[in-house]
Design a binder for these strands. Structure first.
Lengths: 212, 212, 212, 212
DNA sequence: TATGAATGAGGCTTCATTCAT
DNA sequence: TATGAATGAAGCCTCATTCAT
């Protein structure tokens, strides 16, 4: 008698998560009420509990989904060839764009919450490690290709790179007036000179000699 | 009598703000109730409204106070001599330490809120600008002293430095297991090679020649 | 096919009632939700309404079933020979044992509800009368056998006996630490001396003379 | 500035407890909502939480108050002289009267809850012990006065007496049509023959000889 | 200045019940 | 017969804020 069952359930769940995502971006984690989520999802307050055991579970699942998709995206990007460093910087600027402010807001909400909720802290640590692992692999490729200073510990540098992505987001909020070209140039220099200071110097010298 | 009252009033206000600060660090902006603040400050709920028109005002004033004190601290530190770059890095590590997690949590709460509340956004922008101005002055001194690449725009670099402080905080939450020496070395390299890649390379070469 | 369906229906109903019984014992009348009953019975919430018009009907039917089975049990026990008084006391201790606490809890829930709901009050009165009628017949047999004071009104004494069964249950909750042998001895004396004080005295005298 | 303070607070608390008592008698423990209590007490829903941390606390305090007052009442009654057994029976009938049904309902609600909630079980056990201690003292006096069989363990008999009070309540609900004189006579015989079977027999003999 | 009583809206969650399939 | 999606009222509790004292 039941047929679609699982698919339908999963679809509904996803819809609710989407609605929750919109609410959380708009009003923050604590600023969004269950009633808000339900209104956004177009369901009744009671019905939400057929899909999730509570608000915390929704937050956790959404946070996990976002962190996971960030990692997946990184993994996917890795496949192509080309300059690893350029790729990294592109990635960073991309992360800082899009629904820039709201995306950053939710990330910072999650980070703030991770300082208070052990469960959220676990989530954040786990997915940070996963992202850093993916990035470390990219960095190792860059070292093999001679693009990146071989003396750098890839895993530690990867962790720092994630910090740079956060920095890009924080600057997006702190200094939204900054010109995008300037922003990109700054992070370009920041990342390049961290990953391979020698290349930066050489390039600068070449430019100088060329009469820049 | 007038003067004493004014002083008393100001003192009380400061006490309440301190209490609020403790609460907000502990439980977050939305997670702290007026009752919590009052309990922490040792006053009655009604009385709190003699000092502040509402919770939002407390949050705003506290945020302002914190941003202002961060700027003041920077300004104060500037006075001494010594290596400007080393000073910057020390400053960054200091910021990342202390009640590290709780301090970061409140900053991220404020940043997240700034994506939603125009008033908070103004506050964040204004004080970011103030901090960046102070930092820019330090960087200029470094350029005069030959420590920092003179090609760098001091004001833009200053903005990036603030982003690095945020990055240090975010990494403190994302990767708390990272060794402090490693963390310091990473940020040392990050900042030094951003501000003066040539110096980093030269120093590395010297170390190599010395047979490291 | 008709017959099978009817049997199936009855069987299902009984299963649901059993599940409800377990829930009600565990969590109380108001403490058990329809969802709980369904989970325990292994059916869906919607389906339950094919068998019962609502929760109240389940409670009523279950109460009736329990009171009825108590009466049936008494009736059944009556058949055998032997001392009627001993049989009564055994019955009382048996009632007080088993899933003692949970069984008592449900009885008291029903009694309490009977003070509020006229329908429940009717049920309780009706089945009390039925039980007392059965017990009265036992007592009459005891009087014929000379075991019980013939001056006692059997129907009234029967009502009191039911009260004693309730007392045994209440003491089980009020004083669970009381030793079972002590409990039995107490109720033994209570019942025997109520039903036939002379026999108790004579027995005591005999014991004394024997040099106890 | 505050003056009445404590007295006012205590008065309000008592008023709320009274209102709660009325609600619980009327609709049962689980059947009374916080909104009901507040409406009955004439306060707003939120305000109740200035006096009690939650519903459970109200239930517990009310249960405690009732059990305590029952014990105090017993203690008070003890003071007078006269036949201890008569006093006990009077007490029992009194307990069974008054707002009989509602009082019994609340007791049974509490007993039922004690089978599920450890906290309530503790309360019930504690106050049962207290009541039984008081009763035991009365029984000891009766033994000294020669009214009660000296072979009886007073503490155990006291526990059984409490069970009899419960039985009186249960019979009030099960068989409300029973004539009060009959009810009294039954419990009179029950208690007297339990506490001193010999006296009952002697009295019966005397009555018989007198030509009853 | 200072208290804490008081409010009522709103938060999260549970529930008995109905409905489409 | 059987499911489980769906509802919306209600339950307990918290909150920012106001008011009488």
């Amino acid at each position: 008698m039941r047929r679609i069952d699982v698919a339908r359930h999963a679809r509904r769940r996803a819809e609710i998560l989407d609605a929750a995502d919109r609410c959380f971006r708009r009003s923050g984690l604590k600023g969004s009420s269950i009633a808000d989520l339900c209104a956004e999802a177009g369901i009744s307050p009671g019905h939400l509990y057929h899909y999730f055991p509570g608000k915390e579970a929704i937050v956790a699942e959404l946070a996990r989904a976002r962190l996971e998709s960030a990692r997946d995206h990184l993994e996917e990007v890795t496949g192509g060839g080309g300059s690893v460093v350029a790729l990294l910087i592109d990635e960073m600027m991309t992360q800082a764009h899009g629904d820039r402010a709201t995306s950053a807001a939710m990330l910072f909400d999650v980070l703030a919450e991770s300082a208070r909720s052990p469960a959220m802290a676990d989530l954040v640590r786990t997915y940070h490690a996963a992202m850093a692992d993916v990035l470390a692999e990219i960095l190792r490729q860059g070292q093999t290709a001679g693009e990146i200073d071989p003396a750098l510990d890839p895993r530690i540098a990867a962790s720092v790179m994630v910090g740079m992505i956060d920095a890009a987001k924080s600057l997006g909020l702190r200094d939204p007036a900054m010109d995008d070209a300037v922003r990109r140039a700054s992070f370009d220099r920041l990342i390049r000179s961290f990953l391979n200071p020698r290349a930066v110097v050489v390039r600068a010298d070449a430019a100088e000699i060329a009469g820049d």
